[in-house]
Every structure is written in structure tokens, then in C-alpha cells.
Design a protein around this nucleic acid. Structure first.
Length: 120
DNA sequence: ACAGTGACAACAT
DNA sequence: TATGTTGCCACTG
């Protein structure tokens, strides 16, 4: 297996879909789960690309649960994401920051990632 | 084929 | 604490 079966974007989306309601994770953590410890920017790029996808698929991916390692929203216009997070119980302060000690998603174990990439 | 781009992250001032 | 710099990666024209 010199190379994953799916492309990187799809792997990112698969992980994001598993983030539970009311929790958040970071671009870098997702990259690490996928075996790319330095691929944080690419994860952000993958989510940005959602705007070019069909609306239905866009709705099914909880992109708002992904923020940066500092616990801050990374979008230029952060209000939309802040609203979505607050709507599911995540406290976002006036500085657009989330307390990671309280809302951070533990993430998937390597075995779960393995199964996800194999079966979907 | 190759340089440019961006919803990152870590480190240095 | 707040900027600025540098390394990274996948994707695009």
C-alpha cells in the first residue's frame, strides 16, 4: 500500500463526518489521523473546496466542527461558522474562540481509521 | 511540467 | 499577547 485507495479530500471528508455533534477538532489533528502530520493546510484546502460541491453533499459534512489548533475559527467571515457551532451547544466567545479543553473531539484510533479507509 | 494558492501550524521576535 | 516568517501539502491552471 504505497498509497491510500481514496484521494485525500475524500479521506478528510470521511473523518469530518465522524466528528460528533457539539465537539470540535483541528485541521492539524485531522491531518495526523490520516498519516500526514504536516498536512494541516491541505485539510483546510479540502474543506474550502466544499463550496464547489453539490449542496446536498455540502449539507452532510459538518465542516463547522473544524477549527485551528488555537481553538479559533479560521474563516475570513467567521460568523456563519460561529452560529452553527453555537446552535449545537459549542460555546464560542466574542473573540471567536472555543475552549478546546472542553469541546475537543478525542479523535479516531488508528484501527478505526484503518476500517474507515477500507470500508467507508 | 511547474509555479501559485490557501478555512494550517510551529517557531521567532 | 501580537505579528511576522518559514515549512508543509494537495490541488489548480
Amino acid at each position: 500500500m504505497s498509497r491510500p485507495a481514496q484521494n485525500f479530500y475524500e479521506q478528510v471528508y470521511a473523518v469530518v463526518r465522524r466528528i460528533p455533534r457539539g465537539r470540535v477538532t483541528s485541521y492539524g489533528r485531522i491531518a495526523q489521523m490520516l498519516g500526514r502530520p504536516n498536512g494541516a493546510r491541505a485539510v483546510g484546502y479540502a474543506l474550502h473546496a466544499l463550496k464547489d460541491h453539490a449542496a446536498a453533499q455540502h449539507e452532510s459534512i459538518p465542516w463547522q466542527r473544524v477549527i485551528n489548533s488555537y481553538g479559533r475559527i479560521s474563516l475570513p467571515n467567521p460568523e456563519r461558522q460561529a452560529e452553527l457551532l453555537r446552535a449545537e451547544g459549542v460555546a464560542v466567545n466574542d473573540e471567536l474562540r472555543v475552549n478546546l479543553d472542553h469541546y475537543l473531539w478525542p479523535g479516531l484510533h488508528w484501527a478505526e481509521i484503518d476500517d474507515m479507509l477500507a470500508n467507508g
